[in-house]
């Protein structure tokens, strides 16, 4: 079993090997389903020049947003970067490069990257600024653009539970980009709420099989809510 035991007990061990100018793929959608402790560790280690691939860049002071505070991020590959004043400032000051990528294209870039497919054609973005400079090919009379997939040096993922072998399940919509991110890292690190023994998770219910996972660490999560909206009370 020990050869398959992916559990590490310190954040130092979880991100060992992370260095300047690496590409880090991060799961999460907004602040939902983000590996909070791993992000905090990246800030603590202080590596710089990072390219971060994530749908969003957190908010000021939380999530990936904290990596902007010490200018650790050189480039963001994201679909939506609103609601973050520091991000906006660094973007306008030219300190931060942003490659805006349609959400579905971003998900597919990671899925394809993890699946060993270097590029794919999609209709998304054809005829828009996203398609500029990209190869166009027609299939059945419709034009598609060629998009290249992404594999990161590291992938940081948030799961609900994992067993020691790295088999993961996600909870509710905290799944989001995490399963694709998990496949798209040369080293994939998963931060979980609970570590269980092999056999405790139903094999057919596992979202991410352990083969994609290199390290598992148990974290504690604040789970900040970006937009808390509740049902209006009936009069």
């Amino acid at each position: 079993m020990s050869g398959f035991d992916k559990v590490v007990t310190s954040y130092e061990a979880a991100l060992e090997g992370l260095s300047d100018n690496m590409t880090v793929v991060a799961g999460g959608f907004g602040l939902c389903g983000i590996p909070e402790g791993l992000i905090a560790q990246i800030k603590k280690v202080g590596v710089t020049g990072l390219t971060i691939v994530s749908n969003n860049c957190g908010v000021d002071g939380f999530g990936l947003g904290i990596l902007l505070e010490d200018r650790q991020v050189k480039k963001m590959i994201s679909s939506y970067v609103g609601e973050n004043a520091l991000f906006e400032k660094q973007l306008l000051d030219g300190e931060l490069e942003v490659e805006l990528t349609p959400q579905g294209t971003l998900a597919e870039k990671l899925r394809a990257g993890g699946a060993g497919i270097p590029a794919f054609y999609t209709a998304t973005g054809y005829g828009t600024p996203v398609g500029e400079g990209k190869e166009v090919k027609e299939f059945n009379g419709r034009p598609y653009i060629l998009e290249e997939s992404i594999v990161g040096d590291f992938a940081i993922v948030k799961a609900w539970k994992a067993d020691r072998y790295g088999n993961c399940v996600y909870r509710h919509t905290a799944q989001n980009f995490n399963p694709m991110a998990a496949t798209a890292g040369k080293i994939t690190v998963v931060e979980v709420e609970e570590i269980v023994e092999p056999g405790e998770l139903e094999p057919s219910q596992i979202h991410t099989p352990g083969i994609f996972v290199n390290r598992v660490i148990k974290g504690t999560f604040e789970k900040r809510i970006e937009r808390r909206v509740t049902a209006k009370k009936e009069a």
Partner: peptide, 27 residues
Amino acid sequence: DADMINAGKETVTAITGASIFSSADSF
């Protein structure tokens, strides 16, 4: 529930018979 949000990042609920999946499946 912080793990239950919509694309506008608002807290939501799921109806009976809902399904939840990855963003790749969604797209």
